[in-house]
Simulated scan of single mutants.
Amino acid sequence: MPKYVLFGTYCDNVLEKREPYRKAHLEGIKKQKEAGIVITIGPTQDLTKVFGIYDAETEEIVRQLIEADPYWKNGIWIEYEVKEWIQVF
């Protein structure tokens, strides 16, 4: 199955703004991880970017998951791009 990389940007003041949505966001990611769709996801140390790797049949599936996430729906992630990734090792 293809793998996809998520590169995204967090809003300003992310620590405060994400709080109301954090629990729902983490529960959704946990379900995706358990289903084998999310390999890894998380913020950069400076909390400006999000990086993730997905194992999904299509890019559209990944985009649907991202856009259904409470962080995207509530402006915590303010932009993103998805690229198909070629895993060499």
Rank of each mutant, 00 (worst) to 15 (best):
Y4W: 07
V5D: 03
L6A: 01
F7T: 12
F7E: 13
Y10K: 05
C11M: 05
D12K: 12
N13Y: 07
L15W: 09
E16T: 12
E16A: 13
R18H: 02
P20I: 11
A24K: 12
L26N: 13
E27V: 04
E27R: 08
I29P: 03
I29G: 06
K30F: 03
K31H: 04
Q32P: 05
I37R: 15
I39E: 14
I39W: 08
I39P: 07
T40Q: 15
T40S: 15
T40M: 14
I41H: 02
G42W: 06
P43Y: 03
T44W: 13
D46F: 05
L47H: 12
K49G: 03
K49W: 08
G52N: 01
I53Y: 05
I53R: 10
Y54N: 02
Y54S: 04
D55H: 14
D55A: 14
T58D: 02
E59S: 12
E60A: 15
I61M: 15
I66N: 00
I66P: 00
A68L: 04
A68E: 14
D69H: 00
K73N: 04
K73P: 00
K73S: 01
K73G: 00
K73R: 12
N74Y: 02
W77N: 04
I78L: 02
I78R: 07
E79I: 00
E79M: 01
E79K: 11
V82K: 01
K83Q: 09
K83S: 08
F89K: 14
